[in-house]
Computed example of a mutant assay.
Amino acid sequence: MADHAKLAVLIDADNAQPTLAEGLLAEVARYGTAHVKRAYGDWTDNHLRGWKDQLLALSIQPIQQFGYTKGKNATDSAMIIDAMDLLYTGRFDGFCIVSSDSDFTTLARRIRESGLTVYGFGERKTPGPFVAACDRFIYTDVLGETDSGQEKPAEPVPRQSTQDLRQDARLVNLLRNAIEDAADDSGWAGLGAIGSIVSKRAPEFDSRNWGYGKLSGLVNAIGLFQTEERQVGNGKHFYVRNKKKPANRE
């Protein structure tokens, strides 16, 4: 089960804001337990001073990496070496790589080749290859940042209207195709199966990217699909199917 997954969280502090730390670890807890929490950077540099309180409060281990050459990011190399060392221990089920840097693309791919899950966390500017190399990629602006006194907290992602959602062809097609693939003979598909298929095809997919906390809310807001709740055992489950196109009339 996901709750028992052992995760290693590696943070590129040179490339991530300290205000996201609390929301980040809360998100990580949805996928498993963070057995390792490390943040990498040159801690002698004043630009990382905002991380100090977060490191102490959240028990994140700072890993010192001096910038030996101006213009070169030594942090990336240190993270990659540590990640491989941790991978070879065989103690983990997955890795959380926190950075918007494409230099971690090959690392993410290599970890997945070993059968482990990779969760990526980064800003919207994160290059596509790194996003695609992860099993799941979460944009940090949906996590809910805290005010560390150094940075202004990010505004929540605005909820998009039905009209805007319907104009997002990629979103609509992702959902339609996933429903089609997960559907039973009657055309109905469980929401969990739909979400699983979509995430595999688009690692960055997250209903919060459009301002909706749950996939069910996003699906309902689009208004292009039939939905219903069913009582299954002791709980209710959400089902979706594509609306049938009206027959052409002569």
Score class of each variant (00 low, 15 high):
R91E: 15
G90E: 05
D101I: 00
V98M: 00
T162D: 11
S186M: 13
D85Y: 05
M84E: 10
L87G: 06
D141E: 13
T105P: 03
G187L: 12
L143N: 08
S102V: 08
F92A: 04
G149I: 12
T146M: 13
G94S: 09
D135V: 05
L165A: 07
P156Y: 11
R112M: 04
S100Q: 00
Q167W: 10
C134I: 02
T89H: 08
A83C: 09
L165D: 03
T146I: 15
N173E: 15
I111F: 03
D164Y: 04
D147Q: 08
A169Y: 12
L107Y: 03
D147Y: 06
T146R: 14
P156N: 10
D185H: 12
V142M: 07
K152S: 13
V172M: 01
V131P: 00
L116G: 06
E113V: 06
T126F: 01
I111W: 02
V98W: 01
M84D: 07
T89K: 06
I138R: 02
F130M: 06
Q150C: 14
R166E: 04
G149Q: 11
V131D: 02
R166H: 07
P158R: 05
W188L: 07
P156F: 11
E113Q: 13
E113C: 10
A132G: 05
L171W: 04
D181K: 14
P153D: 10
P156I: 12
G94E: 08
F95A: 03
S186G: 13
S99V: 00
V172A: 02
E155F: 12
P158K: 08
I111D: 02
F130Q: 01
C96S: 09
R124Q: 10
V98N: 00
D184I: 12
I179H: 04
L165H: 02
V131C: 03
G187N: 11
D93K: 06
P158A: 14
E123L: 01
E113F: 05
G122N: 01
I111K: 02
Q167I: 10
R112Q: 09
D185R: 14
Y139D: 08
D103M: 01
I179R: 00
D85L: 07
G144R: 09
D184Y: 11
E155H: 12
D101Y: 01
V157G: 07
D101L: 02
K125I: 13
G120I: 00
D93I: 09
Q167L: 12
S161T: 15
D82I: 07
K152E: 15
D168A: 06
G120V: 02
F121D: 02
D135C: 08
Q150L: 14
I138N: 00
E123A: 06
A133L: 04
T162E: 15
R109S: 14
I81R: 06
S148Y: 12
L174D: 09
Q167V: 10
F95D: 02
R124C: 04
S99C: 02
S114M: 11
L143F: 10
D147K: 11
F95W: 04
S99Y: 00
R112A: 03
S102L: 10
L143P: 02
P158H: 11
L171E: 05
I111G: 03
L86T: 06
E145G: 14
T162R: 15
R91F: 11
Y139S: 09
W188N: 06
F130W: 04
K152Q: 13
G90N: 11
L87S: 05
P153I: 07
D103C: 01
S114T: 12
C96G: 05
F121S: 00
P127M: 04
D185V: 14
D147T: 09
F92M: 09
